[in-house]
Amino acid sequence: MLELPYFAGLLIQGAATVLVLTAAVFLRQQLTALLLALVTSASLALVALASQTETLVVLCGLIAVFAAASWRLAPVTAPTALVHGAALACAIGAAAGWSPAHTGLLVLVVPVIAALLAWRLGDSRATVPVEVAGAAAAVLAIALAATDLPLLATVLALCGVIAAGTAIRADRRPVGYAAAALFVLAIWVRLAAWDVSTPEAYTLPVTIPALLVGALRHRRDPRTSSWTAYAPGLTATLVPSLFAAWGDPHWTRPLLLGLAALLVTLAGARHHLQAPLLLGGAVLLLDALHELAPYIVQVTDALPRWVPPALVGLLLLALGATYEHRLRDARRMRHFLTSMH
């Protein structure tokens, strides 16, 4: 085998990557040459990890090469360039001695570029692969920031901004749900970072305006889904309060949360709104189970060991004997839920 110097080996692999990528652009056998280009570029990036400087130079070169090839092979080369961009952001953070959380902020540049590029591409075949690469980079940024709660809240909020910007496009309106979820997650993480023991003081000022806006939107357009109109505002308070209630040794918060969830559930059933009915019911059920769990455990311990399996067996027999009736009930319940807004 040839024992080439390290730098010479990098040059040879880099030249091979450029050649096979050029062949993929201009020759008919695009698939084979493109696969070879991807393999050689991945090998080149791995070999370059032995040196910090070479890693930065190689990743910059790979980004430039694959971006240049995107005029012809954008569905593959554009997301590949974004992946190398995320790797470059991580390499820059490591070279600068940044913490993983601060590196995650730099990685967010890739989702921003991906969102802008997807907007520019429009209905191109490359749009979805570019968006997938951007979403993967956003997940990487969130994972890197997971060790620092304040920065994690910032990263989640910025991801929500990116998602909200994407949702402006008419064909990407459903991304707005993800944006709302990211903003709510950012609020929860921020509350956890502040060690807030009374999250309602911070979430209710968000929930009340959100519910008012949702009610106005639903009134103007009755076809608006209740998940769009009311779910963000309800989850902003109900979920943090549920977590706080689970860790609260006193009975006041679980009681108040249970009453609030009951009112939300009844309001959803009264006005045929699916989101309040299901969210309120789920929170009410979880809150009740948490409060009843100690008593259930005591009763279970007091009973003979054969009683719980026997009760489970009787329940299964009862369900089997009334299977058709239960199936009709499930169908009626499904029809009732799907008929709601």
Rank of each mutant, 00 (worst) to 15 (best):
R190S: 12
L191D: 06
I296S: 04
A318P: 07
L234M: 04
A64N: 13
T228W: 14
E54W: 15
L191P: 09
A137W: 00
L34G: 01
M340F: 09
T235Q: 10
R334H: 13
W251G: 04
S70H: 01
V175N: 08
T127N: 00
R332A: 14
T40Y: 09
A210E: 00
A48Q: 00
H341Q: 15
T300H: 11
L234Q: 05
A261F: 06
L292A: 10
A94F: 10
F336A: 13
L105Y: 07
L156I: 09
V110S: 03
G122A: 04
L303F: 04
T103A: 02
L279P: 06
A167I: 04
L262T: 15
A267L: 15
C159T: 09
T40G: 09
D329V: 07
L27E: 15
A186I: 06
V155E: 00
S43T: 13
Q52E: 14
R270W: 11
V110F: 02
R72H: 09
P254L: 02
W246Q: 14
L144H: 02
A318G: 10
A288P: 05
L121T: 00
L49R: 15
Q274T: 13
A293D: 13
F183Y: 10
H218D: 04
H325W: 10
T80S: 11
L266K: 10
L46K: 15
T338M: 12
V39P: 02
A78S: 06
L106N: 05
A118R: 06
A330S: 04
L34N: 06
T198S: 10
R72T: 07
L35A: 12
T252N: 10
L316F: 02
I168Y: 06
G9R: 11
P249I: 02
I92F: 15
T203M: 00
P232M: 11
L88A: 09
R326E: 02
P249G: 00
A96F: 07
P232I: 09
P232Q: 08
L10M: 08
H325M: 04
L121K: 00
A135M: 05
A167T: 04
W246M: 15
V128Q: 10
A231F: 01
A101K: 02
L257P: 09
P199C: 02
V196F: 00
L151S: 04
Q13I: 02
A179L: 03
L149K: 14
A42Q: 11
L286P: 01
Y177G: 04
P308K: 09
L185N: 09
P75F: 00
A8F: 12
A269M: 15
Q274C: 13
P199I: 03
P232G: 09
Y177F: 11
L156M: 13
R120G: 11
L10K: 08
Y6V: 07
L144K: 07
V175K: 03
L36R: 12
Y6T: 09
A37N: 07
R253F: 01
T53Y: 10
L266F: 12
T166D: 08
A118E: 08
V175L: 06
W194R: 15
P254A: 03
D329C: 08
R223S: 14
T22Y: 12
V18D: 14
L140W: 05
G176W: 08
V25M: 12
A136T: 06
L315V: 05
